[in-house]
Nucleic acid binder design. Structure first.
Ligand code: FES
Ligand code: FES
Lengths: 163, 163
DNA sequence: GGAAATAGAACCGGTTCGGTTCTCTTTCAA
DNA sequence: TTGAAAGAGAACCGAACCGGTTCTATTTCC
């Protein structure tokens, strides 16, 4: 079904949240609460993203994660690749791995490659900034950002990820 | 990894073979031999494609499958949808099913939808005909098609799909 | 030194997927 | 008329992958 893994799904959500205040760093637990993704998952995802240089991390007490770059400079393709590995629709399309088995006489070979490329381009053409900004005309009318004061996250009712 | 299922993979290969002689019908077993996909798999795939009106089938002895339309009128998106179900990257992007769980407060919602659409468009923009034709400058210089005479398929050495 | 945070890896059950097999129906031709 | 050659359709099975958890080690600040 050409399904995208949950990892990437949640990943984007978390990053989107982070992109609302690009400079600011947030702890994993805070982000988990803010996005309703289980803390364990959030941690896992953040670690992956940090390793891919999409986030920068600060360890120790008062630590946390922040975007490594402005959201306009982070593409969806990047994020997915960081979390789910290389984007390769078919096993054979990506040169390097040869596990398709038909390769030798396959007539569709370069066709696949073209498709792959089309999709990667589509994904690379969308930035985190675009994902984060609500479509013009959205329901939520650009919240009057509560003045600095702690502003506890909505603490989403149900936590995702608990079986 | 945004992996496409093998079903679709093989499906395209088989259809590609069929597209080389758009008018002609071929039996499943013949196609299996021609494409090096296991006969069982080939059968399964062909049935699915026939049910989706991409192929027309003729039962009984001397039966077989043929393209229901000229290859220019069959898109890759169609094929994938026939074999792997609807193309929906994320569970939430497709209106109707609600199993993402975050939907309520998810900021990335419409972003997903845009991405989904981009990919579907990319897939819908490539036709079977385009897949079938070797890229200009391909290795194989448009085989001089052997004159009608039985022309046994190359009978690919190794059969795919046998564990 | 200890609490709060990230880093990293191992682990585990469930679901899905690739693939096979079986039975039933249709068609043609000897 | 009958049987072989095809497709239709469903059930079935093992294995890989995935979502999710948990545990330990390391870093940092107070
Ligand atoms: S090489 Fe894998 S489908 Fe063609
Ligand atoms: S609604 Fe599912 S990720 Fe946003």
């Amino acid at each position: 079904m050409i399904r995208l893994s949950r990892l990437s799904d949640y990943g984007i959500v978390i990053l989107t949240r982070l992109a609302r205040e690009p400079g600011r760093a947030m702890a994993a637990s805070t982000l988990a609460r803010a996005t309703a993704v289980s803390t364990a998952m959030t941690g896992k995802i953040l670690k992956l993203l940090a390793r891919a240089d999409i986030l920068v991390s600060q360890r120790g007490v008062r630590g946390g994660y922040a975007l490594a770059r402005p959201p306009e400079a982070i593409t969806v393709a990047e994020i997915i690749e960081a979390l789910d590995g290389p984007i390769a629709l078919t096993s054979c399309a990506d040169p390097g791995t040869h596990d398709c088995g038909i390769e030798a006489l396959c007539p569709a070979r370069d066709g696949w490659r073209r498709i792959n490329r089309a999709i990667r381009d589509a994904l690379a053409g969308i930035t985190l900034a675009e994902m984060a900004q609500a479509v013009p005309g959205d329901l939520v009318p650009t919240f009057a950002t509560p003045p600095r004061a702690a502003a506890p996250e909505p603490a989403a009712a149900a936590s995702i990820g608990a079986r």
